[in-house]
């Protein structure tokens, strides 16, 4: 049996919005410790890993491990209904997700916090997904950059109007984002900056050794759809591994995007 209730239903909406364009179908794995998902995009270039710990839910009960295969676009459509209803407060809908006994459908219930006489029920079909689970090793990264997520989003968007790929280089100077296209080149350098009013506005660069990697901007731009989840983003780079772009979900977990670099032909 699985029962979970999330007071901040908007959080799940933001999670779905951040991953639905990258991954069509995915298994949500539920265990006593929480709700997780791991899925690759169809071309196996990027991987998303989501964790929502049980402590972050208002109510969480999972008696046995289960996997619920869902079409993420359909799930996002259902969750959008919570926000589009005038009576349901978009920022604080209560949400319950309960799979049916046969686990072929999932029932999603939105309850308005301030008008508790209204309940909206949605039932979504589950699907069998033969997904592969990948082992992600613990690794030492050459460089870890933490910066405001809005800044990272803006850089990716700006550079993608000039080129298709971004070279991310970390040196003593800072972190450099570069691109090149038919119309010219662009370089953005962010230096470490901890003298800011709010901690989330800081740029913090931990460098064990200089690193420079090339990535497809199309994917980076897709990852930045998670910007509403967190004020900061952490970018972990190693010359031997996919980059990790992580958005922490306050007190609950994270959404991590792994992207394979472009490599020498």
């Amino acid at each position: 049996m699985l029962e979970l209730r999330l007071v901040q239903g908007s959080l799940l909406k933001k999670v779905l919005e951040s991953i639905k364009d990258l991954v069509n179908d995915a298994n949500f794995d539920c265990s006593a410790t929480g709700f997780s998902l791991q899925a690759m995009d169809s071309s196996h270039v990027a991987l998303v890993a989501l964790l929502l710990r049980s402590e972050g839910f208002e109510h969480y009960r999972c008696d046995r491990n289960m996997s619920m295969g869902m079409n993420l676009n359909n799930m996002a459509k259902m969750l959008k209904c919570a926000g589009n209803d005038d009576i349901i407060t978009p920022s604080r809908p209560m949400m319950a997700v309960t799979p049916s006994p046969s686990c072929s459908k999932v029932q999603v219930r939105f309850t308005c916090c301030f008008a508790q006489d209204k309940i909206a029920d949605f039932e979504m079909k589950l699907m069998d997904i033969d997904s592969e689970h990948l082992g992600i090793p613990e690794a030492e990264y050459h460089a870890i950059v933490r910066m405001p997520s809005s800044e990272f989003s803006r850089i990716c968007k700006d550079l993608s109007s000039i080129g298709d790929t971004v070279v991310i280089s970390v040196t003593k100077e800072g972190v450099r984002f570069s691109t090149r296209g038919d119309i010219g080149t662009a370089n953005v350098v962010c230096r470490q900056n901890t003298t800011v009013d709010k901690p989330e506005e800081a740029t913090i660069i931990e460098m064990n050794e200089p690193v420079s990697l090339t990535f497809a901007l199309r994917y980076m731009n897709s990852f930045t759809k998670a910007t509403p989840l967190s004020n900061t983003v952490t970018i972990s780079l190693s010359s031997e591994l996919p980059v990790v772009v992580e958005y922490k979900i306050a007190e609950m977990g994270y959404v991590r995007f792994y992207l394979a670099p472009k490599i020498e032909d």
């Binding site: 690759m40 071309s43 196996h44 270039v45 990027a46 991987l47 592969e132 689970h133 990948l134 082992g135 992600i136 090793p137 790929t165 090339t214 497809a216 031997e240 591994l241 996919p242 792994y258 394979a260 670099p261 472009k262 490599i263 020498e264 032909d265």
Partner: peptide, 14 residues
């Protein structure tokens, strides 16, 4: 020119 790498060449199936 560079070609796009693949996640499966970094992470193994479990």
């Amino acid at each position: 020119d560079r070609k796009q790498g693949n996640i499966l060449s970094f992470f193994k199936r479990v």
